[in-house]
């Protein structure tokens, strides 16, 4: 019985506010005659036809594939570079000013330049996503690697734990809470850039679809696209939370143990 109640409470906590917001939207927009702000009822009505056809495979899927590719590449680059920079003070001293410079450039500003260099294909879009996602991952990894416990550094030295074993069981694990923080920030950056990279000179994708709806004054469809984006965000963040709960189970446990002992 108690399990049922806590289960119910969790469901309510999860969907309660979204339902309230949707209801507010529904009633507030019910009598709307502004073309750009159609009633929610109309938005929901066009939703299935707009998204459950070819658009799913021709626009949503390509977008998600580019996001995945860009995000994964950013993860690899960010973690590898972050470990290299975080492990060596010399490297850090050399690289830090350049990093500050590069980080200050907003990735959307790179879009026109990348078009010129890499053409208007998928490569450019993926590069834009990488250019945005890599920074939170890189900088957090550097922090995490710098913050390794000196006692554990001595432990590894004493017990000859070195090379790949040290990287795998010590450095990456120790930095994993920060790496996950960076990865979470990068995920939301990635979704934004996925759309932005498709707004110009594009032939498919969510951003492209948005642009189409806008130029054709299909406002209900446009709004339904906003819902799609929101849903993608929710699903990806749930997925992320699942992975994180696996990777950082020890971290949560340790923190809980510290709290109770204080």
């Amino acid at each position: 019985m108690k399990a049922v109640i806590t289960g119910l409470r969790r469901v309510v906590a999860l969907v309660g506010l979204p339902i309230v917001l949707l209801l507010v939207w529904w009633f507030a927009s019910a009598d709307s005659h502004t073309a750009a702000m159609p009633p929610l009822k109309r938005i929901l009505k066009v939703f299935p036809d707009t998204w459950f056809g070819e658009r799913l495979t021709d626009d949503v899927l390509p977008s998600l594939i580019r996001l995945t590719e860009g995000y994964c590449a950013a993860l690899v680059i960010g973690i590898v570079a972050g470990v290299a920079i975080g492990s060596s003070r010399t490297v850090r001293a050399f690289v830090e000013p350049v990093l500050e410079f590069l980080r200050a450039i907003p990735p959307p500003a790179l879009v026109p330049i990348l078009f010129l260099i890499a053409g208007i294909g998928d490569t450019t879009k993926i590069l834009v996503i990488i250019a945005g996602c890599v920074w939170p991952i890189l900088l957090n990894t550097v922090e995490g690697v710098r913050g390794v416990d000196p006692v554990l550094v001595d432990t590894c030295l004493t017990y000859r734990v070195s090379g790949l074993l040290r990287l795998r069981t010590f450095v990456l694990r120790s930095a994993s809470p920060q790496i996950m923080t960076g990865a979470r920030q990068a995920l939301s950056v990635g979704i934004i850039l996925m759309v932005i990279s498709e707004l110009k000179a594009s032939t498919d994708g969510l951003g492209y679809t948005f642009e189409q709806f806008q130029t054709r004054f299909q406002y209900p469809q446009m709004w339904s696209g906003v819902l799609v984006l929101g849903l993608i965000g929710v699903v990806l963040s749930l997925l992320f939370r699942f992975v994180e709960s696996r990777v950082l189970a020890w971290h949560r446990g340790q923190r809980a143990a510290e709290r109770t002992s204080l």
Partner: peptide, 21 residues
């Protein structure tokens, strides 16, 4: 306390130097 890796179980902590060896 700090010389044990919190992400490894007790067994894995003890085993790590042996893996290195």
């Amino acid at each position: 306390g700090r010389s044990l890796m919190p992400w490894l179980r007790v067994r894995e902590n003890v085993e790590l130097p042996l893996k290195a060896k």
